[in-house]
Computed example of a mutant assay.
Amino acid sequence: MPDDARATAISVDQFIPAPPARVWSSLTEPDLLARWWAPGDIRPVVGHRFHLLMPGRGPVPCEVLEVEPYERLVYTFNGTWTLTWSLVAEGKGTRLLLEHSGFDLDDPGDLSAFDRMGRGWRSTVLPRLAALAAQPA
């Protein structure tokens, strides 16, 4: 792939054996979010500014940009990145699609984060979300 065609977003597709309402709660309720990713004062309200307390980084500023309950949640992360969470009902579960965009691959810090975070989302973070959402209520 030519350098100029390299993706600048991380896309992850995770099936979760739980209905969209359970997945939505895991994304938008602070106590549940803290159990699979990071503590924070998230609320699914457009314009809500919040922080996620990331290990080794401290509080990361975020702002909610879009909310479609049980279907789509979009917020900024650290001022330059955007996390787009899309939920699609599939059988008895939910197809969760995450796009983590806004990387500046000319910036060494962003390039390093881009290279690390794809693996982290796929192999650690989203599987923890799936396990939490699939637990009996």
Rank of each mutant, 00 (worst) to 15 (best):
P2Y: 12
S11N: 11
D13Y: 13
Q14L: 03
F15N: 01
I16N: 06
P17R: 13
P19Q: 08
P20Q: 00
P20M: 00
A21R: 08
A21C: 07
R22D: 09
V23Y: 06
V23D: 11
W24Y: 04
W24R: 00
S26T: 07
L27C: 13
T28V: 05
E29P: 01
L32A: 11
L32N: 05
L33G: 03
R35N: 01
R35Y: 03
W36K: 08
W36C: 02
D41A: 02
R43T: 05
V45S: 07
V46C: 04
V46D: 02
V46S: 09
G47I: 00
G47S: 00
R49V: 04
F50L: 06
H51R: 14
H51Y: 11
G58M: 05
P59Y: 08
P61G: 10
P61H: 02
V64D: 09
E66Y: 02
V67K: 08
V67I: 08
P69T: 12
E71M: 03
E71K: 10
R72W: 00
V74A: 12
T76I: 10
T76V: 08
W81F: 15
L83I: 12
T84W: 08
W85T: 02
W85L: 04
W85I: 01
W85N: 04
S86G: 07
S86W: 08
L87C: 01
A89Y: 06
K92M: 07
T94Y: 03
R95L: 09
L97Y: 01
H100W: 08
G102N: 04
F103S: 01
D106M: 05
D107L: 09
D107Y: 10
P108N: 04
G109K: 06
D110T: 06
L111V: 06
S112T: 15
A113M: 14
F114A: 09
F114N: 04
D115C: 15
D115G: 14
R116D: 15
M117A: 07
M117Y: 13
M117Q: 10
G118V: 03
G118F: 08
G118W: 06
G118T: 04
R119Y: 15
G120F: 13
V125A: 13
V125Y: 14
L126K: 05
R128P: 02
L129E: 09
L132W: 07
L132F: 10
A134S: 12
P136K: 15
A137E: 11
